[in-house]
Amino acid sequence: MKNKFLLLTWLLAVPLLWGGCDKPLFKTDRGSIAQPDELPPITTTGEGTFACKINGVNWQRCGGNLKDSSLSGNWSPNYKIFQLSAFRDCEGFNDSVSISAYLDSLGRYDLHRGNYFNADLPCLDRWPSFYSLLDSADNWVEILNLDTKEFIVSGTFQCTLVHEECGDTIFITDGRFDYDWAN
């Protein structure tokens, strides 16, 4: 009898609690979420920044799904490949930007790979479930600092990505990053 009473109380209380919530239970309308007014400045001291514009809208990493960070990457001296991924898992967003290039010093390089993943993509059930580089576009990364003793890589980038299955193209411009891959 006691268990039935607790169950009945719980079943009556839950709808009342839901009605008092200020936050919706489902996804937030992205148009109502504030975006950063400005991108962070271009720096070369390992500040941990990653930002860009996607189709003209400011995009900046946030949240923490990789060991309490939203930025992951490295530069391999043996293979001369640089990889960097930034995640935005906050305020109703769940997407990521990744870039990689073969490089060995300061300068401008063609991107080897670039991806954009959006968990809210309407055609997410199609493979691949991310945008990838449009080969005919001007996809590049410019390395402004590659400090192998302090493990810092900094630079700027731009790329055009396409999702052929969804029939959509996005333009990433004004990209900048300043990453300390040892921390």
Rank of each mutant, 00 (worst) to 15 (best):
K2G: 03
F5V: 15
L6I: 15
L6R: 13
L8D: 10
L8E: 13
T9P: 01
T9H: 11
T9S: 15
L11P: 02
L12N: 06
V14G: 00
P15T: 11
L16M: 07
L17R: 00
W18E: 09
W18G: 05
G20S: 10
C21E: 11
K23I: 01
F26N: 05
F26H: 05
K27E: 15
T28D: 15
R30H: 15
I33D: 09
A34V: 09
P36I: 06
P36V: 06
P36N: 07
D37F: 02
D37L: 06
L39W: 09
I42F: 10
T45E: 14
G46E: 07
E47K: 10
G48H: 12
T49E: 09
T49Q: 08
F50S: 11
A51D: 14
K53C: 08
I54M: 15
N55H: 10
N55K: 08
G56N: 05
G56M: 09
V57Q: 15
V57W: 00
V57Y: 00
R61F: 00
C62R: 04
G63S: 06
G64R: 11
L66N: 14
S70R: 05
S70P: 02
S70L: 02
L71G: 03
L71T: 01
S72F: 13
N74F: 15
N74Q: 13
W75L: 02
Y79E: 14
I81H: 13
I81Y: 14
F82Q: 08
S85I: 05
A86R: 10
D89Y: 15
N94E: 11
V97Q: 10
V97S: 08
I99L: 13
I99N: 03
S100E: 05
S100M: 08
S100Q: 03
A101D: 05
A101F: 07
Y102W: 04
L103P: 04
L103Q: 06
S105I: 02
S105H: 09
S105L: 01
L106S: 03
L106Q: 08
L106T: 05
G107Y: 02
H112A: 12
G114L: 04
N115L: 12
Y116L: 14
F117V: 01
A119R: 14
P122K: 09
C123P: 00
D125M: 07
P128R: 03
P128M: 04
P128A: 03
Y131N: 09
S132F: 14
L133D: 08
L134K: 08
D135V: 08
S136M: 05
S136P: 04
S136T: 11
A137M: 06
A137E: 14
N139P: 10
N139S: 11
W140K: 13
E142A: 08
I143T: 12
I143F: 14
F151K: 09
G155R: 10
G155D: 02
T156V: 09
T156W: 11
Q158H: 12
C159R: 07
T160I: 04
T160F: 00
L161K: 08
L161W: 12
V162I: 12
V162T: 11
H163I: 00
C166P: 05
C166T: 02
G167I: 08
G167W: 10
D168M: 06
D168E: 15
T169E: 14
I170N: 15
D174T: 03
G175S: 04
R176S: 03
D178I: 03
Y179I: 01
Y179M: 01
W181V: 01
W181E: 01
N183S: 11
